[in-house]
């Protein structure tokens, strides 16, 4: 459950942004979470409610955009979507590649505040 710690630092960053923008309420928080980030969106949601309690972000919406994994074949110079088994098989030549183009994202993307 490293999601609890990650969510606590996220909310700390959100509140510091809100203060910096002289906002008193946070309405919506958007995160991007990669399929290979090692972080579970459901566990983040669970940690969210506890992390925002009693803060200006209490009651804010949490949107989690999932970022699918994409691989790249160095032989074919081709980028491709990866199936849920996370085996990066090139659709053109069939070689299994270790190159990850996207999927590790773990990002505080956007905040809506007033």
């Amino acid at each position: 459950m490293h999601e609890v710690g990650i969510m606590e630092t996220t909310i700390a960053a959100v509140l510091s942004e809100a203060r910096g923008h002289d906002a008193s309420r946070v309405h919506n928080i958007v995160l991007r979470v990669g399929a290979l980030s090692g972080v579970e969106p459901d566990a983040l949601r669970l940690a969210f409610d506890a992390a925002v309690k009693g803060t200006p972000a209490d009651g804010a919406g949490l949107e989690i955009e999932s970022v699918p994994a994409r691989g790249r074949c160095p032989d074919c110079d081709l980028e491709f979507d990866v199936e849920s088994d996370f085996i990066f098989t090139c659709p053109k030549c069939g070689r299994i590649s270790g190159e990850l183009v996207q999927g590790r994202e773990l990002e505080l993307t956007r905040i809506v505040m007033s």
Binding site: S24, H27, L108, I111
Partner: peptide, 13 residues
């Protein structure tokens, strides 16, 4: 205060 959207793209880590 007006509602504002702030783009951050900040790593959670």
């Amino acid at each position: 205060k007006a509602t504002r959207t702030v783009e951050l793209r900040l790593s959670l880590l």
